[in-house]
Simulated scan of single mutants.
Amino acid sequence: MSTWTADELTRIGTAEELQVSSTRTDGTLRPYVTIWAVRAGDDIYIRSAYGSANPWFVRAGRSGTGRIRAGGVEKDVTFAAASPEAHAAIDAAYHAKYDRHGPAIVGTVTGSDAEATTYRLVPRAG
């Protein structure tokens, strides 16, 4: 595993949306799904707005790996768990970036219910 560069963190963190794809068992990528993403500290996080049964979220969890595109960055990633201590900062980042869309929408990716649908994106070397 590797780490994000400062440029990647800025570009992905400021992009309005992120496209995420999980890896199939044969190594090919599934179609991309467009979602919201935030930067909290030196990490990038994504959450499922429609719960843990959302198909993209389930597939990402099963495969454990995939690829993201945002802000001109395209990178292979591992879908990792977020540490429990990170959730307050993740919520704050979602509010700061997306509150202009209204509380009903932002509420789908913030709060204690959203914690179970969080992946930390870890860039993969190569």
Rank of each mutant, 00 (worst) to 15 (best):
P103Y: 12
T117G: 06
Y94D: 02
A114G: 06
R69M: 09
G66H: 01
S83D: 15
R59S: 15
V106R: 07
D42C: 06
T10F: 09
G64M: 08
P103F: 10
Y32T: 06
G72L: 04
A116K: 12
G71N: 05
A82P: 06
G107N: 05
T34K: 13
T28L: 06
I105V: 13
S52C: 10
P84M: 02
G102W: 10
I44C: 01
I44H: 00
I90T: 04
R30P: 03
M1Q: 14
H101G: 07
S83I: 07
G41D: 09
R67L: 14
A49P: 04
A53W: 13
A96Q: 09
D42R: 08
V77W: 05
E8N: 01
N54C: 08
D43P: 07
S63W: 08
R24N: 13
Y94E: 01
G107Y: 08
A70K: 04
S83K: 12
A37Q: 10
T117I: 07
I12Q: 03
D76W: 09
F57Q: 00
L29P: 02
R39N: 07
A37Y: 05
W56Q: 00
A70C: 10
V122M: 11
E16G: 15
D7H: 05
S48P: 01
L29T: 02
Y98L: 07
D113C: 03
E115V: 15
R24M: 08
Q19R: 13
G13A: 05
A104F: 07
V73W: 08
R120W: 07
A6D: 15
E17V: 12
I90G: 01
G71H: 04
E85H: 11
R67A: 12
G64C: 06
T5C: 09
G66A: 02
R100F: 14
D26I: 03
R67P: 11
K75G: 06
K97E: 11
S83H: 14
A86C: 11
T23Y: 03
E85F: 10
T118D: 11
L121G: 01
T78A: 15
A80I: 08
R69D: 10
E115C: 13
G111N: 09
A82F: 05
R69T: 13
D99G: 10
Y50P: 00
I12M: 02
Y94M: 04
D26K: 01
A49H: 00
S83M: 13
E85D: 15
A70G: 13
Y98Q: 11
G51V: 10
V77K: 02
A92Y: 08
P103D: 14
R69C: 05
W4G: 03
G64I: 09
T3V: 15
T78K: 12
S63G: 15
S22Q: 10
A93H: 09
T117D: 10
I46V: 12
R11A: 14
A80R: 14
L121E: 01
A93R: 02
V73Y: 09
A88H: 12
A70N: 11
